[in-house]
């Protein structure tokens, strides 16, 4: 298969970027999108042009490293990560526009590589259960209904790729934060810190400069882990309760 790529090139965080056009020739249709980029890069190296930098690692859809916006859609057409996108989903001769994830809190490092450290900062502010290694009670000491465990698992499947914020017209990180707040808040082990967690994670999210949720649900449409936006409602609820408690001075 043959394609024309319009790729965003940017030398560094401070420099201006531009689109460059490269041909992608003789691409097997079983190749993944990233393998197609590998082949184009080999070509570029042969011509003495620096290869296009893009983030990738596990290439099996779980690590959340890959992060391309393809034809305006984070991770491209279909459900799943960029690394799980195969060239047979494209038409012969198509022009494919490849951009980095765009959002103020995700500064571009180079070409298609962005810094998603803001997500780590949010988790560090409260996205955990405080617990000391070796101090845990027996794993079966607290039964957790299967339905709750399953729902928590749905929320916990977030791979932290950032597509939600990249797809959101407001660059909101609500789906990411909502998933973590829900995952931990649903489990009995996470309840003691529920209010503190919701407050600090939302504050950390605000400070990072993410936009606000307008309930557009673009996040849900692109999420490779199929995290539903109902976890955003759950975050809204938990935050309102926690903030109200804090406002009246109730114990958090």
């Amino acid at each position: 298969m043959n394609f024309t790529l319009r790729v965003w090139r940017q030398d560094g965080p401070e420099t201006a970027g531009r689109f460059e056009e490269y041909p992608a020739r003789n691409i097997p249709d079983e190749a993944s999108f990233l393998e197609m980029l590998d082949l184009v890069n080999e070509d570029l190296i042969g011509k003495g042009i620096e290869p296009v930098e893009f983030d990738h690692d596990c290439r099996e859809g779980i690590c959340g490293t890959c992060s391309l916006t393809i034809d305006g859609v984070p991770h491209g057409p279909g459900r799943g990560t960029t690394c799980q996108l195969y060239m047979r989903s494209f038409r012969e001769g198509e022009v494919i526009v490849i951009e980095p994830f765009r959002a103020t809190p995700f500064p571009i490092l180079r070409d298609l590589t962005v810094d998603r450290g803001a997500f780590d900062t949010i988790i560090q502010s409260g996205g955990f259960i405080s617990e000391r290694s070796g101090s845990a009670p027996d794993a079966n000491a607290v039964p957790i209904p299967k339905t709750i465990a399953d729902l928590a698992m749905d929320a916990a499947s977030c791979i932290g790729c950032g597509a939600c914020a990249a797809a959101c017209p407001n660059s909101s990180a609500m789906l990411f934060v909502g998933a973590k707040v829900s995952h931990l808040g649903l489990l009995p082990q996470g309840k003691p810190e529920k209010n503190r967690r919701a407050l600090s994670m939302v504050r950390s999210m605000d400070e990072a400069g993410f936009g606000n949720c307008s309930n557009y649900y673009a996040c849900e449409a692109v999420c490779p882990a199929s995290i539903p936006a109902s976890f955003i409602a759950s975050l809204n609820r938990q935050y309102a309760v926690a903030a109200a408690k804090e406002t009246v001075g109730a114990t958090l």
Partner: peptide, 22 residues
């Protein structure tokens, strides 16, 4: 065994049976 205890305490959503046990 301590690993499983530790992970459950951290909020790892292991598969469970309807009764709530692992």
């Amino acid at each position: 065994n301590a690993i499983i205890d530790q992970c459950v305490a951290q909020g790892v959503p292991f598969a469970r049976e309807y009764g709530g046990l692992l």
